[in-house]
């Protein structure tokens, strides 16, 4: 479990990183916290010939509130978000308790998690749930990609090989939102994860498809007193699931129902 050889490049600026990525092409891979990538490299499941280290770029980490918008730098660690006082964006901090364990959260980054695009990853769910925009910089400059269009498949995104995620923009507060998960062990990748935003009538699920899945919610409108159970049943019922080894569609659907219900409860009490 030793990685294959690669050439190491340290970027000092976003432009420098983009330059390296442009120059090195498909053989290059960006490393930030490395909490997923290095594990895959140790298994030799990933074997980039060039590794572009962006962790020494200044200014890519930090959380900024601008009016109703929250901007999170790509190199911000999960732990920094967990410890931050985010007020009506508190769902982000609370959700971080589901990300691996402390030593993973101290190194793993928001941008890295989004770029890795695991369909059960908390940041992917949160970005889709809260309709975040992913800010990427490439040779042609910056562009913003709506999270709903970013995740294309398992570990596949709309990011070009020469683009770097620099920031996540959350456009609106979500005071009544929550994320919850189920796995046999705490800290594992979720079997099913559910994130809800009661104010936006949105539910996003992980573990039910190749990307985070936005499920249909029944009524929208201003009534906040609707029983979450009906959401849970409706969402669970709307999914197309297949039996897989070790987990039937029926069980997965049951987990969805439970987790949506629990996420709704948590979201409505704001705890």
């Amino acid at each position: 479990m030793k990685p294959a050889a690669f050439e190491y490049h340290r970027a000092r600026s976003v432009a420098g990183a983009v330059g390296l990525l442009t120059e090195l092409g498909d053989d290059a891979k960006v490393v930030a916290g490395g909490q997923s990538l290095v594990a895959m490299m140790n298994f030799r499941l990933a074997r980039p010939e060039h590794l572009v280290d962006i962790t020494h770029i200044d200014g890519l980490s930090g959380i900024r509130r601008e009016g109703d918008t929250l901007r999170i730098g790509a190199l911000t660690t999960h732990r920094a978000v967990e410890k931050a006082e985010l007020g009506d964006f508190g769902v982000l901090s609370r959700a971080m308790r589901w990300v691996g364990h402390l030593p993973i959260r101290t190194r793993g980054t928001v941008g890295g998690s989004i770029a890795h695009a695991d369909a059960t990853a908390e940041w992917c769910l949160l970005a889709v749930l809260l309709e975040a925009r992913i800010v990427a910089e490439g040779p042609a400059g910056r562009r913003e990609i709506p999270a709903g269009e970013f995740f294309l498949g398992p570990f596949t995104t709309a990011l070009e090989p020469d683009e770097l995620i620099v920031e996540l923009v959350f456009p609106r507060p979500a005071p009544r939102a929550a994320l919850t998960e189920y796995a046999d062990r705490k800290g594992d990748f979720a079997l099913v994860a559910a994130a809800v935003d009661l104010d936006a009538d949105r539910v996003v699920l992980g573990g039910v498809g190749p990307t985070p899945v936005s499920a249909d919610c029944p009524s929208s409108g201003t009534s906040h007193s609707r029983p979450p159970v009906s959401w849970a049943d409706a969402v669970a019922g709307s999914l197309e699931l297949r039996d897989e080894p070790g987990i039937s569609a029926h069980y997965r659907r049951g987990l969805v129902r439970t987790l949506v219900e629990r996420a709704c409860e948590e979201a409505s009490c704001g705890c």
Binding site: M1, K2, Y8, R10, V31, G34, Q35, V38, A39, N42, F43, L51, D53, T55, H56, R79, G100, H101, L102, P103, I104, T106, R107
Partner: peptide
């Protein structure tokens, strides 16, 4: 384990616990 789960390699990087198996030494210069 060399894949970041067992934690036997946990060290402090700038004071924070981190998995030394998931970090290339080159990354933590400084």
């Amino acid at each position: 384990c060399e894949h970041g789960i067992c934690g036997a390699c946990t060290v402090l990087v700038d004071g924070a616990p981190a998995r030394a198996c998931l970090i290339f030494a080159a990354q933590v210069e400084g």
